[in-house]
Simulated assay, not measured.
Amino acid sequence: MPEYIEFPQENIDKALALARSPFEGVDLQSADMLTPEAVAQAGPAAVSAGCVALRSEGKKVCLKVPFAGNICVPVDLPDGTFAEACVDICTRFGVPTGACVVVRAAGKQVWRQCFGWC
């Protein structure tokens, strides 16, 4: 059974709070949300929730991705290679809609995928 590396919940919580902050006290159902300024601010946003260190095993790395669950992704790296996975939380109006993950090894991107609506 693979070991799924988790992103720190504290980082995820901070990213979500940051994404929600422009909409605090805003009535999202009001006609004011239809102004060009409001529509521009309400577009999709991706907020970094940090990175974790991991090691490849069996030409894959396994992660617990926020809002997507446990995933193992293929990487063309020798077993035991140290890598880094970073996650961005995708939001609309400050509401989480998905996550994008990038895996890097030796400073090079080896995999990227988004889950949900990003």
Rank of each mutant, 00 (worst) to 15 (best):
K14R: 15
F82M: 12
I12M: 06
Y4P: 07
P44T: 02
V73M: 11
F7Y: 14
F23C: 01
C118K: 02
G80N: 13
I71V: 11
A105H: 01
A106V: 09
A15H: 05
G94M: 04
C90D: 11
A19Y: 14
G50T: 03
F67D: 00
I71S: 06
P2R: 08
A99L: 05
A105E: 06
M1C: 04
A46D: 02
C100F: 05
D13C: 09
Y4A: 01
A19R: 12
A106D: 13
E84L: 13
A17D: 14
T35D: 06
C72E: 13
F7Q: 13
F115D: 06
F67N: 04
D88C: 05
C90I: 01
K108Q: 07
A19K: 12
C51M: 04
F93V: 13
K14H: 08
G50K: 04
M1A: 12
G50I: 00
D32Y: 09
S30G: 07
I5Y: 05
N11W: 14
L28V: 04
S56T: 08
S21H: 09
A17H: 11
V110N: 05
D13G: 03
I12E: 04
Q29K: 14
A99T: 11
A53F: 08
A31S: 15
R55K: 15
Q29E: 12
S30Y: 08
R112E: 10
I71M: 15
V75R: 02
P44R: 15
E24L: 15
A99M: 01
C51S: 15
C62K: 11
V110F: 03
P2T: 00
S21D: 07
W117D: 13
R112D: 01
P2Q: 09
P2A: 11
F23D: 09
A68Q: 08
D79G: 12
K14S: 11
A17V: 07
L63R: 01
E10N: 14
F67R: 12
L18W: 06
V39A: 02
A15Q: 10
A31L: 06
V61S: 00
C72D: 04
L54M: 11
D13H: 10
L77C: 02
A38S: 14
K60L: 01
N11Y: 12
N11V: 01
C51F: 04
S48M: 00
F82C: 05
D79H: 15
M33A: 07
P78V: 08
P8V: 03
I89L: 09
G25Y: 08
P22K: 13
C72L: 12
A105Q: 05
V75S: 00
